[in-house]
């Protein structure tokens, strides 16, 4: 199945490439992982891959280097991009906020059955010894030098995938492969982790975040990987004047950083989970944003990144208003 989809992707990209500025996709760099590629040359198309190891959300590259030319030159060719369901919502959010125009992108939508979290795989096999990995019928089959391991895909899916409501791209020009049915259809199932944490007493929740955030090394990978963190080099956590954050590495500083980050994403975060995936210290930072997403949904009936025409609730202010 994967093979067929990959062939379809290669064929579609081959046809489209002459009209594109470049194609952003994934390539395998390791049995269990991929790395983003930027293709301008037809002979590199064969390196494109798709499937459960394509964890990165590529939408951010449209507003950060190497694409980064918003507003695009009038004569600029569109950029081709591969998106999973969650990635497509980031695209929509960027279109809503006018960081990119719909015409600027050629969207290769990829229905997604969930992505593999290599940390979870590491609970089953020693990663360093993995020779090959593949998914067959929702079983992750891993070969190392001595054995074949078979792990149910469910056990190694990324946390964000477990409550996924939009596995199919919400926007696309070409759909690669067949649509899949969502794992979750409502708030009850998609905010399970938030609800679980919320059920704990305040002290316990505080202790949880203190212990989790204590590990933060302030590498800012979570921020830089976020496709909606568009301030980039002007982020207020690094500005020198005014200096909002000290260089201390205590939990209060990290708290402040992560909550500034989350608040700036309120009503904008599409729950792609990149911030959590990239964290070298395995801090569940997406949970903070999920909590805000839940509030947005409960209070305002709004989920980010679903409708390119919608105006995100917190962007509805009118700069001319006198009371703000």
């Amino acid at each position: 199945m994967l093979e067929t989809d990959r062939n379809q992707l290669h064929k579609c990209v081959e046809e489209a490439l002459p009209e594109l500025d470049m194609m952003i996709g994934w390539t395998r760099c390791d049995p269990l992982q991929t790395t983003p590629v930027f293709i301008r040359d037809a002979k590199s198309i064969s390196s494109l891959t798709l499937g459960p190891f394509c964890s990165q959300n590529l939408a951010g590259y449209l507003v950060k280097p190497p694409a980064l030319d918003a507003p695009p030159k009038p004569d600029a060719k569109p950029i081709g991009i591969c998106v999973k369901g969650c990635d497509s919502r980031s695209l929509v959010a960027l279109i809503q906020e006018k960081f990119i125009t719909r015409q600027r992108v050629r969207i290769f939508g990829i229905p997604c059955g969930g992505t593999v979290d290599w940390r979870k795989v590491a609970r089953h096999v020693e990663l360093g010894s993995v020779k090959s990995a593949d998914v067959q019928d929702r079983v992750l089959v891993i070969e190392d030098s001595t054995t074949t391991h078979r792990i149910a895909l469910e056990e190694v899916l990324s946390r964000k995938c477990l409550g996924c409501r939009h596995p199919n791209p919400v926007i696309s020009d070409v759909l690669i492969g067949a649509e899949v049915s969502p794992r979750s259809t409502g708030m009850e199932t998609s905010y399970r982790d938030v609800d679980e944490l919320d059920a704990k007493p305040l002290e316990e929740r505080l202790a949880f975040w203190q212990s989790e955030l204590d590990r933060c090394i302030r590498c800012y990978a979570c921020r830089n990987a976020c496709p909606l963190c568009v301030c980039q080099d002007r982020c207020i956590v690094e500005t020198r004047e005014p200096r909002w954050l000290t260089q201390h590495v205590g939990v209060p500083e990290k708290f402040l950083f992560h909550f500034i980050h989350a608040m700036h994403l309120a009503g904008r975060c599409t729950g792609c989970g990149e911030c959590e995936r990239v964290c070298p210290m395995d801090i569940p930072v997406t949970l903070i944003k999920e909590k805000l997403n839940k509030i947005m949904e409960e209070m305002l009936g709004y989920s980010a990144g679903l409708d390119p025409e919608a105006v995100p609730p917190l962007l509805t202010f009118n700069p001319g208003e006198t009371e703000i």
């Binding site: 790395t35 983003p36 590629v37 930027f38 951010g60 590259y61 950060k64 280097p65 190497p66 090394i217 302030r218 590498c219 800012y220 990978a221 921020r223 830089n224 990987a225 990239v278 070298p280």
Partner: peptide, 10 residues
């Protein structure tokens, strides 16, 4: 080109 300019590697 895919670098995120984060500080992980360092």
């Amino acid at each position: 080109s895919q670098c995120l300019s984060c500080g992980v590697c360092t």
